[in-house]
Amino acid sequence: MAEEKLPAGEAAAGGMPQFDFSTFASQITWLIITFGILYFILATMILPKIGNTISNRHNRIADDLDTASRMQREAEEAEVAYERVLADAKAKAHNVAESTRASINEEIEREITAADAEAAAQALKSEAKIADVRREALSNIDAIARDAASDIVKKFIGKAPTAAQLKKILGG
């Protein structure tokens, strides 16, 4: 294979068809024709279409990504709005509860005061009544004692004492 190592050397010996200059014109002519037609078809028909497809897809993907970002932003805004509404509602509920509790407390207080007052009035009335009853009872006791004493005296002496005598006995 050593002799094949130098193609240039062979060319000098006339062994290389690549250096047969008589074929050059034809080769270059046909290269210009085929290369030119290939260039024309690629440049005007095929490559623009492939380029279009690629850029369409690119745009489409970019659009989709934009849409997705926009939707994400909207979702985030919705979330913020939702949380704000929620917080408002909570605050409101808290206020309502608070004011309700306050009003209920007030009412209870008022009722209790009223009840206390009534109870106090009732108590006073009752006390007065008890005092009356006691006074009446005490005064009745004198009469009963007098009767009883008169009965007892009568049993011993067979004769009922007079009222003056009784008064003397009982010291009343």
Binding site: H58, Q72, A75, E79, E83, L86
Partner: peptide, 27 residues
């Protein structure tokens, strides 16, 4: 229960954001 709902959805949103970022970078 009520408070857990928003955090859930925001973690979903974070996830979406991450995926979008990845897709955008790939693009």
């Amino acid at each position: 229960k009520r408070t857990s709902q928003p955090t859930q959805s925001s973690s979903d949103l974070d996830d979406l954001e991450r995926r979008l970022e990845v897709a955008r970078n790939r693009h």
